[in-house]
Amino acid sequence: MTSPNPPTGPFPARRMRLPFHWLGILPFAVFVLLFLIMPTMKIVIGAFQRPDGSFTFQNIGNLFTPSILAAYGISIRISMASAFFGCLIGFGTAAAVVLGGLPRAIRGPLMTFSGVASNFAGVPLAFAFLATLGPVGFITVFLQTELGINLRMLGFNLLSFWGLTLTYLFFQIPLMILIITPALDGLKKEWREAASILGATNAQYWRMVALPILTPAILGTFALLFANAFGAVATAIALTGSSLSIVPILLFAQIRGDVLGDPHLGYALAFGMIAVTGVANTVYIWLRARSERWMR
């Protein structure tokens, strides 16, 4: 480091420096290994083991019961729907603010609010929606008493697929806005002008230039929003108790030891969650590689 004696030659100095270099990230590597990689590997391996430690596919096989499959199905659909609408609405909002249509002055407040709302997830968010659209929520009550509209009779239930999706959108949309705004800022004014002077309509510009350029960012955010919704436990539990059977709630109950009672089925459930988010991200990486040939 700050040795007073200059090294005798370049060679010993270099030999000394190599392990020292790597030492710098050792704390980080150990921490990540202990508290992220190894716990995850424990789950993955456990999913393929019998209680005595021998290899088996039985745990995974046990997932294929109608109730567990249904739980995965509804989890995936909620995550897809909330990621899709989150991307769509968030993109529309960000585009309207960045590219005109809406005044630039609302940009600052919008970004700040998005920061807050994207972090306002979990238990309090569920309370907010219960107080608004729940059985005695103020909109439910208002529609019932003032307008005579009974949301329940119309088929709306907060503790359902659409109810959960609607609630998740509260943090999904702002997250999309936060991530996609810098990408929209990266669209150069000259591209739009060049396209238009070459005869392209606004729609042609979006289809042939802007959207292809934004595709990697949009796909990435979609994958992130999907994982975000898929792993959301707190919002779901606080909102529905355990009345809606989605995978995170099932796993939560399993870990708590409430139901099922087979620890290795728990491993398999958790492994299934990793597999789903893993597949989502692999698809994303593959799509990104395809759409990003033109990037460095």
């Binding site: 150069k188 000259e190 591209w191 002008e193 060049a194 396209a195 238009s196 002077i197 070459l198 005869g199 392209a200 309509t201 042939m208 230039v209 292809p212 350029i213 033109w294 990037m295």
Partner: peptide
């Protein structure tokens, strides 16, 4: 007339090529 209704070619200061096209 809008730019795309005129028959005009334009070269910009720099970096106005569409990056996603060869």
């Amino acid at each position: 007339l809008r730019p795309n209704q005129r028959n005009i070619g334009m070269v910009f200061q720099a970096y106005a090529l569409f990056p996603n096209m060869n």
